[in-house]
Amino acid sequence: MLKIMKYSFFDLIRSRWSFVYFGFYFLLGMTLLFLNNDVSKAIITMMNIIVVLTPLIGTIFGVMYYYNSKEFTELLMAQPLKRSTIFLGQYFGLALSLAGSLVLGLGIPFAIYGVVGSAALLSFALLLAVGALLTFIFVALAYNIGLANDNKIKGFGIAILMWLFLAVVYDGIFLISLFVFDDYPIDKFSLIASTLNPIDLSRILIILELDISVLLGYTGAVFQQFFGTSLGMIASFGLLFTWVALPIGLIVRQAKRKDF
């Protein structure tokens, strides 16, 4: 698996798109840090972008890479390799190269700016960790969509819809249902519903670090327990890792049964 991963990774980091993606984050980091000097504000803006953009890019690159490397995959399948080895190798190669673009693209401006050792280091590290995890999650989801759909156009469409759903529509439905069921005890529901969507979960992880003060403004016992203690952080991270593990498991399962 490591061999496949290595070659996929090298293939991808040399692609033009990796450079564009890296360059985007690099410029973003530079602009935000050197134009407004307020690190915590820069981190909030970055969070808004990362939480939406890394899933989108992960999804698009995921399906694109899956379909583009279809023939190469067939060549690999004729080699003495397990199927899971091939797909996990490609998956990790892709996810690592995207996560690398993110971490380096934002990390370099921050290092130049001198965030190491500053108070913002923890929030920044958290931001990068969450961005990387989101990349791993959405590339895995996209790979699953690719594996389930041989039709490229259809797969692409489903992937984009999935992103749209998780990034926007889900929250809309969520908000409306909170509004409608206002009269019932809904704090448990609202916490659970937000952990079922990795984008929401990542957002909560970051606001636990950045906006904890506002989250503590509510009396609900569940909220208090979740936000008031380190439980929130630990549980959110645990769930995010589950969100990585589940679709990877599904890739292995789908790969075993699929015909090429």
């Binding site: 809904i186 506002v214 509510y218």
Partner: peptide, 19 residues
């Protein structure tokens, strides 16, 4: 919205809320 339904605070800074 948060004043009306406090639990919606979990949606703070989400894209939908920005919209």
């Amino acid at each position: 919205i948060v004043n009306r339904t406090p639990e919606t605070i979990v949606l703070l800074r989400s894209l939908f809320v920005d919209i």
